[in-house]
Design a protein around this nucleic acid. Sequence first.
DNA 1: GATGAATGAGAATTCATTCAT
DNA 2: GATGAATGAATTCTCATTCAT
Lengths: 244, 244, 244, 244
Amino acid sequence: MTIAARADARHNRARVLEAAQEAFAAEGLSVPLDVIARRAGVGAGTVYRHFPSKEALFEAVVHDRIERLADELTALLATPEAATGEAFFTAFSSTVEQAGFNKALCESFVSTPKAEVAPEARRRYGIALAALLDRAHQAGAVRPDAQISDVMALMAGCVAMEAHSATPGRATTLVLDGLRTGHSPLPTVTKHVTKPGYRNETREDPAARCEECGTAIPTSRTGRPPRFCGGACRQKAHRRRATG
Amino acid sequence: MTIAARADARHNRARVLEAAQEAFAAEGLSVPLDVIARRAGVGAGTVYRHFPSKEALFEAVVHDRIERLADELTALLATPEAATGEAFFTAFSSTVEQAGFNKALCESFVSTPKAEVAPEARRRYGIALAALLDRAHQAGAVRPDAQISDVMALMAGCVAMEAHSATPGRATTLVLDGLRTGHSPLPTVTKHVTKPGYRNETREDPAARCEECGTAIPTSRTGRPPRFCGGACRQKAHRRRATG
Amino acid sequence: MTIAARADARHNRARVLEAAQEAFAAEGLSVPLDVIARRAGVGAGTVYRHFPSKEALFEAVVHDRIERLADELTALLATPEAATGEAFFTAFSSTVEQAGFNKALCESFVSTPKAEVAPEARRRYGIALAALLDRAHQAGAVRPDAQISDVMALMAGCVAMEAHSATPGRATTLVLDGLRTGHSPLPTVTKHVTKPGYRNETREDPAARCEECGTAIPTSRTGRPPRFCGGACRQKAHRRRATG
Amino acid sequence: MTIAARADARHNRARVLEAAQEAFAAEGLSVPLDVIARRAGVGAGTVYRHFPSKEALFEAVVHDRIERLADELTALLATPEAATGEAFFTAFSSTVEQAGFNKALCESFVSTPKAEVAPEARRRYGIALAALLDRAHQAGAVRPDAQISDVMALMAGCVAMEAHSATPGRATTLVLDGLRTGHSPLPTVTKHVTKPGYRNETREDPAARCEECGTAIPTSRTGRPPRFCGGACRQKAHRRRATG
DNA sequence: GATGAATGAGAATTCATTCAT
DNA sequence: GATGAATGAATTCTCATTCAT
C-alpha cells in the first residue's frame, strides 16, 4: 500500500516535471501553474505537494535540463576530440543551441534572478565544462587567460546573442573565435526553419560534414565549399592520400 | 498662455519620463505604473495622458536612452580614434556598460519581444555603429567577415554576459577579441559594483499567526493567505469545527 | 469687448451643444466628455463652464431635441389632419422614428433614470401631444379611455420595440392599432438600409404616399396596394373626382 | 470525495448565481463584480472560476431567468385557457411584469447589444410563446397578421413602457388590445410599487473642506477632488502662493 | 472666459498559493 | 496523498471633474 502510494506519487511527480518541462520550454516562467497542472493531469495542489513553489518547480526543471547537459559534457570528455580541445567547443555550441530551443533554459542562463537557478546542477555542469576547458587549454586551443567563469558568462551571452541573430551559430562562432587561438569562417544564413515550440528564427541547412572527422562545418554561400573542418584534418587527409 | 500651459505639461512629462527612466532602469518592465506615477509625483492618469500605455512609456524611455547612445557614437566618429578602429571598440564597450546599469536598456537589448522596442532610435544607433565598424574595417582592426548584424547580436550577448560576470568588462573584452585581429589582455580587477537603483527584493510582512497555535507564519504576497502553520493545526481546527 | 466675449461664449456653447448632439445621438451617454470637447474644438473646461456636469449636457441635448419635436407637434396641430385624429398618429410615429435614429433620445425615452431627463421640454412636448390626442378623441379616432400618460408610456415602449423589430414601423403600427378604434394592415420588411451613425437594422422602401395628403403609408406585400392613408382621404378624393 | 468537493463548488456557484441574480436584478449590468462576490461571500476569483467574465455571469443569470419564464409558458400551454387564447395574454403580461421587477431581465429585453443575451433560452422561450400564440390565433383571439416576432418586439416595448407608467399593467393592456380582436377595459388602480432590490442612489461623503475658507464642499465620486469652494478662494490661495 | 493638464477612485481580470473535502 | 476550489492582492487602464495657467 505504502509502496504503491509512493510509486504513485513518484509517477505523479514525474508527470508534473514533464509537463512543466514542456510548458516552461515553450513559454518560460510566465506559464500559469494551473496550466502545468492540467497538462500533467493532476490538481494544482499536487504540484505544490511535490514542489513548494512555482520557482522550485522551475528550478527542478532547469536542474534536470542542466544535468543532462552535464552528462553530455561528461560523455564528450571521453572522446578523442577532448584532447584536441574541439570537444570543448562542441560542448559550448551544443549548450547554446539547446538553450535556444528551450525558453526555460534560456531564461535560466540569461536572466539574473535574485538567486541563481539550480546552482547544484550548474556546479556539476561547470565542473564538466571546466574539465573540457582544461583539456583545450592543454591542447593550446584556447587562449590561456580564459577562465571557466569567463566561459560561463560567454555562454549566457551566446544564448542571448543567438536569439538576436538571423544566422544560427554565427554569433557563437564569433565568440568562440575570441576564445580560440585562431579564427574560423563564420556561418551564413541559408534558409528558414520553423522551430517547434517557441522560436521562429532562421535556421540553415544541415551543415556539411568534414570529410575527415565528420564534424559539422558551417558553409558560406560564396567561395569554394569547405571539405574539412580545419587545417588539421586537411593535413591528415593529405597524408592519407599520399600514403594511399 | 498656451505656451505656459504646455511648458507645465512638458515639465510633467519630463518628470514622468525621468521617474520611468529610474524605475525601469532599476526594475525593468515589471514596475507597476502606479509606482512610476507616485515617484513622478503625479496621478496615474497623467502618465496615461502622456503615454498611451505602459509599453509606450517603456519604449519612450528606451528610445531616449538609445538616442543618447547614438549621439555618443556620432561624437566618437569625429575623434582620431575612429580612424584606428579603436573608437568602434570604445563604443561597443560603452553601450554594454551602460546597459549593464540600466535594466530597461538591458531588457530591450536582450529580450526578443514580438515587436522590437524603439526601432527608430535603434536604426539611428545602428547606422552610427555601422559607420564606426566601417572605419575599423578600413583600419584592419576588425576581422573582415564581421558584419554590423553580428555586432548587434554580440552586443546583446555582452549585455547578458556582464550581468553574469563578476569582473566588469572581462567578458566583453573576450568577445571583442573575437572581433579583433589580435588579442588583448583581459581585465582582472575584481571589484564589486552595486548597481545604482537596483532595489532590495526582500519584503517584510507583519507575520500572520496560526489560528490554532499562534505561531507566526510567513506570508507571501500572492496566493491565498495562510490560516494555519501547517497540516497538523489545520487538522486540529477541522476536528474542532466538526465536533462543535 | 464684453459683448464680443459674450458672443464668443454663446458661439462656443452652440458648438458644444452641436458636438454633443452628434456624439450622444451616435453613441448615447457613454461617449467620454473629452471626445465631445475635442469634436467641438474646445477644451474640456469650456464644456464645464457651460454645463455643470455631463448629465446636464446630456439633458440640454435631449431638451433641445424634444423641443424640436414639440415644435413639430405644434405645427401638426394646425393641419387639417389634426381634426381627423390622423395628426396624432403621425406625431406618435414621427417621434418614435426619430428616437430610433438618435441614441440620446432613445435612451432618454427608454431608460428610467433617477430623475427624468429634460422634464421642462418633456412637459411642453406632452402638452402638444395631449392637444393632438384631444383632437383625436374628439374625432373618435382613439379609444376613449387612453390618456396622455398612457400615450407617453406607449411611446417609450415603441422606441424600444423598434430597436427589436426587423420591420420598422411594424411594432408601432400594432401599438397604435391598440389605440385606434379600428385596425390597419401591418407593414412588412422590404429591404435593408444602413442607418447613419449607430443602428444597423433593416429598413424598408421609402413608404408609399397617400395620393391625397402625401402622408407615408405602410405597405403590405400582399393584397391591393393602398392609395390613401385612410378613409378620410379616400372620401376627399372621391368628392374631387365627382366634382371634377 | 470528488463528488463532495463538487457539491461544495456547486453550492458556491449557486450562491454566486443567486447573489448575481439579486444584484443584477436590482442594478443591472453596472454592478461591480466585487460587490457580487462580496454579497455571495466569496472572493472575486471564485466568481471568475465559475464564470469566465462578467458578461458570462450576466448571461447565466438571464438564461436562468428566461428558462423559468419558458417553464411557466410551457405550463400555461397545458391549461384550458390555452385553447381560448387567454393563456397567451397571461404569458405576455407575466413576462412583462417579471421583467419590470428585474433590471437584468429588463435590460436583456430592452437593450440591443452586439450579441443577443442568452440566445438558447430565448429560443426555447420563443418556441413556447409561439405555441401559445398559435393557439390564440386558432381561437381567433389575436389579430391574424401578428407574428411571433411582432410579439417579441412588443414585449420588449412593454417592459420599457411599464418602467414609465404609474399604473402597472395599463400600458401592457393597451398594447395587448392592439393584438386582440376586441378591446378590454384598462386597469386604473394607481398603486405605488417599490421595486424590491433597487437601491438608494444617494451617497453621503464626509464633505471635504475648502483649503481657503473651510467651507464644506460637496464631493462627487469621480473626477478630480475639489480643493476650494469656488474660484474666489482658489484665486486667493493662488495669490498667496505667488506672494509667498 | 478658455484651455487642456492633472487627479484618483474605480473596474475587470489574473494567478500564486492555501485549504476543505 | 490527491484534488481542484477559494482567496484576494495586484495590475492596467478609463474618465468625470477640478484646477493652474
